[in-house]
């Protein structure tokens, strides 16, 4: 049975005239131990799906089943031991006035876990930060180190499912490689099921088994990474994303502009 099953999920913001369907009838399944990619441009609803899954957004309709249990909008405390999330911006996701130690103590205190000291030391080791980092403030850490702390915070509750919201898009490429390697290691060690949200097809292709391409709240196409690597997308939008991710091409860029008439009037 699938670890995560999402059926006809919809999330809308606003009401009446200004109602916006951020996510519009989305369905997908993720098997245990798999990593599923959600790719699309900003505002396509991919992060909103993660927020509904994680319980940060409780205004959704449809059905979410995690590990066999159907989820309600309001979550029990035990839910959060099973599902954790890593955010995009390592500069905004750590409390600026808490040391690494305080940040990692918080989940332990909330869930009343024992062996706090040991757990913190262990998880810091696991994400490649030594004990020397334990009493530093976020402003004393680099972007990559902050993201490691954020990953440690997610791991300390030993979850089964890790939701990754653009975990490397704020980092330099060399740091991105380190973090992606770390995530791959942790995933296999802890046998995690992951959903990775990104706008970068290359990152998705590197990390995931299957992916869904999203635009305007809908899944346009679901495909395997092999299909993507073999340049076999079915939907024209996926093809466009694929081409754009390969770099600038004068001929294609000119063609893309012609298809933009609708965009102008739409935005205006």
């Amino acid at each position: 049975m699938a670890m995560i099953a999402v059926e006809d999920l919809s999330v809308a913001f606003g009401s009446g005239e200004s109602l916006v369907h951020a996510v519009d009838g989305v369905s997908f399944q993720v098997e245990a131990g798999d990593t599923f990619g959600l790719v699309g441009e900003s505002g396509c609803g991919k992060s909103t799906i993660l927020r509904a899954l994680s319980g940060l957004n409780d205004h959704w309709h449809g059905q979410i089943i995690i590990d066999g249990a159907r989820l309600e909008p309001k979550r029990q405390r035990s839910f959060f031991k099973k599902v954790q999330m890593v955010f995009q911006d390592p500069y905004g996701s750590l409390h600026p006035r808490h040391t690494v130690n305080t940040t990692l103590m918080e989940p332990i205190a909330i869930h009343g876990l024992d062996r706090a000291d040991q757990r913190i030391a262990q998880v810091l080791e696991q994400v490649g930060l030594g004990p020397a980092f334990r009493f530093r403030y976020p402003h004393q850490l680099s972007g990559g180190q902050r993201q490691r702390v954020a990953i440690a915070r997610a791991l300390i509750l030993e979850p089964k499912i890790l939701l990754l919201d653009e975990p490397t898009s704020a980092l330099d490429v060399s740091v991105q490689a380190e973090i992606l390697n770390l995530l791959a290691d942790i995933r296999s060690q802890a046998r995690l099921t992951c959903i990775l949200v990104s706008h970068d097809l290359a990152v998705i292709a590197h990390m995931c088994h299957r992916l869904a391409v999203m635009n305007q709240g809908k899944i346009y196409e679901e495909l395997t990474v092999d299909d993507l690597a073999g340049n076999r997308p079915r939907h024209s939008y996926t093809r466009q994303l694929l081409q754009a991710s390969l770099g600038y091409d004068r001929r294609l860029a000119a063609a893309a502009t012609l298809a933009d008439d609708g965009l102008d009037s739409g935005a205006a």
């Binding site: 959060f80 954790q84 999330m85 955010f87 996701s93 909330i110 869930h111």
Partner: peptide
């Protein structure tokens, strides 16, 4: 995000 992260920990 750091408040969101704390919420996700069940606080």
């Amino acid at each position: 995000d750091y408040i969101a992260a704390t919420r996700i920990q069940g606080a």
